[in-house]
Write a protein that binds this DNA or RNA. Structure first.
Lengths: 142, 142
DNA sequence: GTCTGTGCAAATTGTTTGCAACTTA
DNA sequence: TAAGTTGCAAACAATTTGCACAGAC
């Protein structure tokens, strides 16, 4: 998704909440958007630290999460990572234990069964998270 | 599983590694075993703090995890919790967002599809983790 | 000019570690 | 008696917060 759309969503939220615009927030958002990877707060901070303090990075990321722009990702007990989720469908992850790479996957069958499982337990399903851990193609060759 | 079996597994590991037995480790293990819930280190410590320090609780839990006796569980970014996994089949969790209760579930269909997904991506699957978040039967009534 | 956002440093939380005293084998 | 284990307090890492100052509207 283009950055303008993302920015617009943030701006709407900011106005709706009576908050103010700031260049720092925009820079954090753009940096996250530009990155192909899921960044941690620390990593993101390293990209912007000439202009922005770490506390602001955290505050921005929390704000983005709050307004539905981004997702917090937790793999095991590793540091929280962030991804822009706005406009993206839910996906699961294949995570390589050797190189740390992750692959996004979608599978409708699994989602169907998940709904079934929830129904069988009289559970009202809201969301889910599935991670598959293993060794990726490249790392298997080594 | 009876405690003796669990204890035996620990003792074997301890001997194999040239470590020594200790009453503290046994008490931590028994406390975890007795509990129906997945305890955090802090909660476990509260049950044994008359005899045992928090550092020993952490050291014990790490040891148990290392030797395959227990599992670390991470829900979102909450504190790590522990469950005895020895002798138990892998299971997934339904987690109630309201009361925090979790239900263990097993579903072979999902495991099959997970293997398929991994194969499609030339991924060598080692383990997985699936959490379903929602509202449990009781909490829906409120 | 008022009120929000930022940066810094200090506080907090969960967990690990160094070290002297204690236990086990 | 030699080596591993414990408890305490200090160290750590990730994140949040208090406060004075800067910036938005």
């Amino acid at each position: 998704m283009e950055f303008v759309k993302i920015k617009e969503k943030l701006d709407n939220y900011i106005e709706q909440e009576g908050m103010r615009h700031s260049s720092q927030r925009e820079e954090v958002l753009r940096t996250l958007w530009q990155s192909e990877k899921h960044l941690s707060a620390e990593e993101l901070y390293n990209e912007v630290k000439e202009n922005i303090g770490i506390a602001t990075v955290y505050r921005s990321l929390n704000l983005f999460t709050e307004c539905g722009l981004c997702n917090e990702i937790y793999f095991n007990n590793e540091t929280t990572r962030y991804e822009i989720s706005y406009g993206k469908k839910h996906h699961d992850h294949l995570i390589c234990k050797k190189c740390g790479k992750y692959i996004e996957v979608r599978n409708d069958k699994i989602e169907k069964i998940q709904k079934q499982v929830a129904r069988n337990n009289n559970f009202l399903l809201k969301s889910h998270k599935m991670d598959l851990y293993g060794v990726c193609e490249e790392c298997q060759k080594e």
